[in-house]
């Protein structure tokens, strides 16, 4: 096995695993967070969707040759509702 890989496995991996475990435990010590939303205060039936639109604009096409990896992009026309 490559000596660099050996050092990573024996030294770096235990440090990272131990740090991850300790940070998870530490995060459970600080549980106070500012609330950013008020979803709990929307009553039953309180949300009404009054309008929606999904308008197709245009299509872009990318072609990549599988063997050589070269690619080109062609834009096709578009417009209208779908």
């Amino acid at each position: 096995m490559d000596p660099v890989i050996q050092v990573v496995l024996v030294a770096i991996v235990p440090i990272l695993v131990s740090l991850l475990i300790c940070m998870i435990w530490r995060s459970k010590m600080k549980t106070a967070h500012i609330a950013r939303e008020a979803d709990n205060y929307i009553p039953e039936g309180g949300f009404r969707l009054t309008g929606h639109g999904d308008m197709f604009l245009y299509r872009t096409t990318t072609r990549t040759k599988i063997n050589s990896g070269s690619s080109s992009t062609a834009n096709r026309s578009g417009g209208g509702r779908r």
Partner: peptide
């Protein structure tokens, strides 16, 4: 890749 413009309108009550 198909590109869309999407719009949504609505009202929400809060208590």
């Amino acid at each position: 890749t198909d590109h869309y413009r999407v719009t949504r309108e609505g009202s929400v009550s809060f208590r």
